[in-house]
């Protein structure tokens, strides 16, 4: 069989070899030059104007500031039994606020009537997206796959989620809402949130 193949190769093979060789060589030459030029430019990096540079440095400093606040919160949660997370006056009838709780997971606090507030885990029990900080028709809403939860009980009302969003303990002193440290040791990790049973 191999021998037959070799005969074949002498007749048909040669011509197609030339065609393929030409295609490949042409492709290679034009293309490799263009790509090499791009790659060299890429490695050398950009020439930024000073406006662009200062814009970038400013942006970086803003981010560092945000990071600093987050780190301060992380420190505080290790040393205190309550964390300031929002101001009552910042909330309105439908607009709540997302904060980071003692488990380093997102939670959300809403106004509940005139003078009280209610906080729930913001980790959707469906697949773990963060729920919206705005109520929709008085319900907590996860935009990821459109699950709705009851504000008072946390129970799922519609959509793919099937279990409740747990409440998180808070206290209000003056205008400040504090998350209260849960009793017992705090284990951090994805398993800390309830989710749909299988």
């Amino acid at each position: 069989m191999i021998d037959g193949g070799n005969n074949q190769e002498k007749t048909v093979g040669r011509r197609s070899l030339i065609v393929y060789a030409c295609a490949a060589v042409l492709g290679l030459c034009g293309f490799m030059t263009a790509i090499a030029k791009q790659v060299l430019g890429f490695i050398s990096g950009p020439n930024l104007t000073s406006a662009e540079k200062s814009h970038m440095v400013n942006q970086e400093m803003n981010l560092l500031e945000e990071q600093k606040q987050y780190d301060q919160m992380k420190l505080a949660r290790m040393n205190t039994s309550k964390l300031p997370v929002a101001k009552v006056s910042d909330l309105d009838k439908n607009g709540g606020k997302i904060f980071t709780d003692y488990f380093l997971l997102p939670a959300v606090v809403f106004k509940n009537g005139e003078n009280s507030c209610i906080a729930r885990s913001a980790v959707c029990t469906h697949l773990g997206c963060t729920v919206q900080p705005e109520l929709v028709d008085g319900k907590i809403y996860c935009a990821c796959h459109m699950s709705y939860f009851d504000l008072q009980t946390g129970k799922p009302l519609a959509g793919p989620a099937t279990i409740a969003l747990p409440e998180e303990p808070i206290v209000i002193e003056d205008d400040i809402i504090y998350a209260v440290r849960p009793s017992g040791p705090i284990k951090i990790g994805p398993s800390q949130t309830p989710m749909n049973p299988v």
């Binding site: 093979g13 393929y20 490949a24 293309f31 790509i35």
Partner: peptide, 25 residues
């Protein structure tokens, strides 16, 4: 039939790669 890998099939390989690279770019 059979064809040789070097360089008959190897060139087919190479041209397929170049076509892919062109389309990719």
């Amino acid at each position: 039939k059979q064809e040789k890998f070097f360089f008959n099939f190897a060139l087919k390989d190479l041209s397929a790669w170049m076509i892919f690279l062109t389309l990719l770019v």
